[in-house]
Design a protein around this nucleic acid. Structure first.
Length: 355
DNA sequence: AACACGGCCAACCGCCTGAAT
DNA sequence: CATTCAGGCGGTTGGCCGTGT
């Protein structure tokens, strides 16, 4: 026996609510409360389904509804809760006073989800996106052999078997995709990073990535004790880039996130963030941490301290970018800065009217 | 000015759950 | 225990509106 309709559909109005209907509903609820939604519309003189009335009230007319743009702190809360709860919008809404599940859901789908994707983070798993694993960069080692690898403190330890498998996949991708451009490691390090990445990006099927990782759980480090901080003399290897070779969005990054004027530190931070998702897609052989174990929540928990920390100078062999003293702090600050940067970019880009 | 396009979000749809009978 | 039904939830849609051409 099928479920019966919540109310008689014939003759009932659908679509956007008018101001007059809103007023009728508000007046009725203020006078009588909202006990029985089935009988409410008839008693209130509304040609609406009870369900429609309930949604209108809970999502729009309720007096405690909070309007306006979500704050950065609210977004943090949503992401943290979503990483634990998934699409339990109503549960998430209980932790955000004045926000409805519908509003949170819409905001997630239109803003946060896209931002996480831009950051290379899978919005479903909250882990780095395996489908964008940049195998060609691993193969060419252009990143690991570049001076920028030093600022991560990354010592490459790529499993030869992984390289073999990746090479096989890369080869098949190149054969199938005539537009594929292999990055030879000799190119411009300071070009538009999105463009560079697009050019040498190998999009693998998720299954391929999972297989690669399951079969080869030792690529390069995530919290790898073999990681060493960059040395001060290594930063000297960096050559000052031509101004028009800087990443297109570098200037706004400089002003909003780093709080320092030194171009080299800013550029280091920028490139670190650009590559953050990529770095995190790698497995730690020591602790057996997989990409899916990546704890985005704990990274975000450090946002408040990391996002305002100035980049440190390359003064000694144990200092990290942003002044973090440990590798965990360093990674957190990359993530935090990146997320804050993307949030600020959204603010700048949006036409949102502040209320 | 007119049109096309894409983003956003209010509202709807269909399914699920649990209480009442 | 089976059935009915209200309320709740998450996914989806359609229309509005701003922007680009």
């Amino acid at each position: 026996m099928g479920r019966s309709p919540c109310c008689e559909k014939n003759g009932l109005k659908k679509g956007p609510w008018t101001a007059e209907e809103d007023q009728k509903l508000v007046d009725y609820i203020q006078k009588n409360g909202y006990g029985n939604w089935r009988t409410l519309p008839k008693n209130a003189g509304l040609q609406r389904c009870g369900k429609s009335c309930r949604l209108r009230w809970t999502n729009y007319l309720r007096p405690d509804i909070k309007r306006g743009r979500f704050s950065f702190e609210e977004e943090e809360t949503i992401i943290q809760l979503h990483s634990v709860l998934g699409n339990k919008w109503s549960t998430i809404a209980t932790r955000l006073p004045g926000r409805t599940d519908n509003e949170i859901k819409n905001y997630w789908n239109t803003h946060i989800r896209k931002r996480l994707l831009r950051m290379g983070i899978d919005p479903v798993t909250h882990s780095p996106r395996l489908d964008l694993l940049d195998i060609s960069t691993i193969l060419s080692s252009s990143f690991y052999n570049s001076p920028h690898a030093n600022m991560f403190g990354v010592q490459p330890s790529v499993n030869p078997e992984l390289l073999r498998l990746a090479a096989s996949l890369l080869s098949s991708q190149q054969n199938q995709n005539p537009n594929f451009v292999h990055h030879n490691g000799q190119g411009n390090q300071f070009g538009n990073p999105h463009q560079v990445q697009e050019n040498h990006l190998v999009q693998l099927q998720n299954q391929d990535c999972q297989t690669l990782i399951q079969e080869n759980p030792s690529c390069a480090p995530l919290n790898n004790p073999n990681c060493v901080p960059f040395a001060s003399d290594q930063s000297a290897q960096l050559m000052e880039p031509n101004v028009d070779q800087l990443p297109s969005n570098f200037s706004s990054f400089d002003q909003q996130t780093c709080h320092v004027n030194d171009w080299q530190n800013n550029l280091d931070n920028f490139l670190a963030m650009e590559n953050y998702g990529y770095e995190q897609s790698i497995i730690d052989p020591q602790s057996n941490i997989t990409s899916s174990d990546f704890d985005f929540t704990s990274h975000l928990s450090n946002l408040s301290t990391s996002s305002s920390s100035p980049a440190s100078l390359h003064s000694n062999s144990t200092s990290y970018i942003n002044g973090s003293s440990t590798e965990d702090e360093r990674e957190s600050s990359y993530c935090g800065n990146l997320f804050k940067y993307e949030y600020d970019q959204d603010i700048l880009d949006s036409n949102y009217v502040f209320m």
